[in-house]
Design a protein around this nucleic acid. Sequence first.
DNA 1: CTCCACTCTTCCATTGAATGGAAGGAGGAC
DNA 2: GTCCTCCTTCCATTCAATGGAAGAGTGGAG
Lengths: 249, 249
Amino acid sequence: MAQTSEPGASVTARVLRVLEAFRVERQRMTLSEIAYWAGLPLSTAHRLVGELVKWGALERDGDERYHVGLRLWEIAALSPRSAGLREVALPYLEDLYEATHENVQLAVLDGIEAVYVERLCGRGAVNAISRVGGRLPLHATGVGLVLLAYSDHEFQEQVLAAPLRRFGPKTITSPRHLRRVLAVVRQERVAVSDRQIEMETLSVAAPVFGPSDRVVAALSIVISARCSPSAYIPAVRTAARSVSRALCG
Amino acid sequence: MAQTSEPGASVTARVLRVLEAFRVERQRMTLSEIAYWAGLPLSTAHRLVGELVKWGALERDGDERYHVGLRLWEIAALSPRSAGLREVALPYLEDLYEATHENVQLAVLDGIEAVYVERLCGRGAVNAISRVGGRLPLHATGVGLVLLAYSDHEFQEQVLAAPLRRFGPKTITSPRHLRRVLAVVRQERVAVSDRQIEMETLSVAAPVFGPSDRVVAALSIVISARCSPSAYIPAVRTAARSVSRALCG
DNA sequence: CTCCACTCTTCCATTGAATGGAAGGAGGAC
DNA sequence: GTCCTCCTTCCATTCAATGGAAGAGTGGAG
């Protein structure tokens, strides 16, 4: 073994960094690109990528580029917090989608962000910026507000103590304002996020409770900002309750 | 480093074996179980699992059991052949679901099996045995017949040369019979798989073509065996064509 | 309380798997 | 042909990985 480029870095960590190099803006990459983004020497990357391809975690296409492979996705489809949750929730999401034909989404809390685990949208609805597998900040989205409002007090204080990123003129950036919003969310059991990220859309979100009576997800609808959110609140609440019931078996 | 339990086995391969230990029937496991299924000594498993948890590929719950983590799923959501395909196809799958309220599925070919990448089903439809992220043999499912019929000749011969597993009295197990079915699929551009796995269901499937005019997926509907497949053929074909069009930009 | 069973966690001397610069190969453009 | 870019291969060296064994922790039974 020659000198390592990075003393202390384990193989496992390096492999995970290879996977982590893939982003929505970098879905297909050459070996050199992977090595660059993973911070690994080319030879090392070549070896690790080779093994990942052999197993199916990465796949290689005709242009000698690599993309995430089906095999990894198969394993990941066992994740209870994403694919598992989605499976239980899907009928109710579909019902809501069918009733409204708007963007219907389901998200969970991870770290200090909301991770979107499902999104049903047809071709007519406004184009919400969320993406299945993507993340958005808690304070600026309907689902995020719900997840935050129902998280433990310490966590809320932590989020409130950090800077609240601004996306546009309507983004909540004051902790004081966010506190008030969170209190309303808890009272109303619904969150409305009005044009916080995009001026054309607003979202209505409600909490999904799990078996221990803790909020495990948030369900939302994204509609045009020209619509009235109150028209959607009962449907969103209903769908979220149905998912909650299904989760508590 | 002490003597390895398995000379020649790389760390990467071992890590991947840890991930591979997770199955639909083993979604939550103790460390000992993971070690057992991955064929690793307890200490080794403990170390590798620890790193995977740190990164988020595995998560640990209150009962000291591990499950697949959200972070792995996030990366996997970048897989063009599953999540990516699903994203493009979803509006059309939804349309078909809404029109029929039956089980709607999308599958791709991997190895010698069909892998289900999407499945929309409500609470009323028959309970198809497929699972998102799951696999089924090509000869016994609608999507599988389509994927097989449109695969290259060599591959077809390979599948036809191997034993065709029987699921029930109606399963196609004769290569001769399968050959005839495949020819009909190619002619009709639709496959009907009638009670091949379960006596209560049949599926109607059509090919989804990609940019190079090759079949990249199969779209199907699963209905009660008491229904007439011909009533669904036009809708399934239409939906598959729409997805094909969307994939070819 | 003690004892037992089970599972997990920690340790560390040893070694075997990993390393990455350098050379060579492949393909494309001029 | 040369030049450039990216990938692939090689191997002496080293450092990260190893796993049995001991210890720790937990829960249940008596």
